[in-house]
């Protein structure tokens, strides 16, 4: 019998590393995707591009971006940790830049391009960061991982060959309660091809 290692388990479940969007094609290409607005709350119809798909939807003005992603678009790979712009679990890319999606109102996203963890893999082909995260045991509990991946993605988009210090600085906005920071740094450097062999975690 094949021994089950932690790594195989993580690969098998993709805990936090791979999130697959439930297809929404029939539901929300242009029609309002949010049936649960309170009747008298101010609402606005916004257009935005999420993971390459153009969407038009009616949102309550008070909804944050992460609420819309999770509660109304079923993109639950993005996590809510502190909901106060402090922990980084909700990190997504807006127009290519990492932001805390708990600290943006969805209504401010009108006309913007949003990339979430669900948009990181190309079909069944994992992003090199996702592969490196698995190979380097980057997640422990996995809760912060999708945010860590998106912060890393933004970092490598602007700086494809970062030094260790640059990776550490680029990831300061993402807390990990398992304190697996060294593995995250190793994984990002491996994905960037800047990991020197023999580098201890």
């Amino acid at each position: 019998m094949k021994k089950i290692s932690r790594r195989l388990f993580v690969e098998g479940t993709g805990a936090g590393i791979v999130a697959v969007a439930i297809p929404l094609e029939g539901q929300a290409q242009s029609a309002p995707a949010a049936p649960t607005t309170a009747s008298n709350a101010p609402k606005t119809t916004i257009k935005l591009t999420i993971n390459g798909q153009q969407r038009s939807m009616e949102v309550e003005d008070r909804w944050t971006l992460v609420e819309v992603l999770r509660d109304h678009l079923q993109l639950t790979g993005t996590k809510i940790g502190c909901d106060r712009g402090e922990c980084g679990a909700c990190t997504v890319l807006v127009n290519g830049k990492a932001v805390y999606s708990c600290s943006q109102l969805a209504v401010w996203m009108d006309g913007r391009t949003v990339q979430t963890i669900e948009g990181l893999a190309q079909g069944t082909k994992l992003d090199p960061l996702q592969t490196a995260f698995i190979e380097h045991d980057a997640p422990q509990c996995g809760y912060c991982t999708s945010g860590q991946l998106m912060a890393a993605k933004a970092l490598l988009n602007s700086n494809p060959k970062p030094t260790r210090e640059e990776v550490r600085a680029g990831m300061t906005g993402n807390l990990c309660r398992c304190s697996n920071y060294n593995h995250y740094v190793e994984a990002v450097m491996a994905a960037a091809g800047t990991l020197k062999s023999g580098g201890a975690a």
């Binding site: 712009g85 980084g88 990190t91 807006v94 830049k97 990492a98 932001v99 805390y100 600290s103 943006q104 912060a151 933004a154 970092l155 600085a169 680029g170 300061t172 906005g173 993402n174």
Partner: peptide
């Protein structure tokens, strides 16, 4: 200031 995410926003 703060973190990359805060500085971007």
């Amino acid at each position: 200031v703060a973190t990359p995410q805060i500085r971007n926003a």
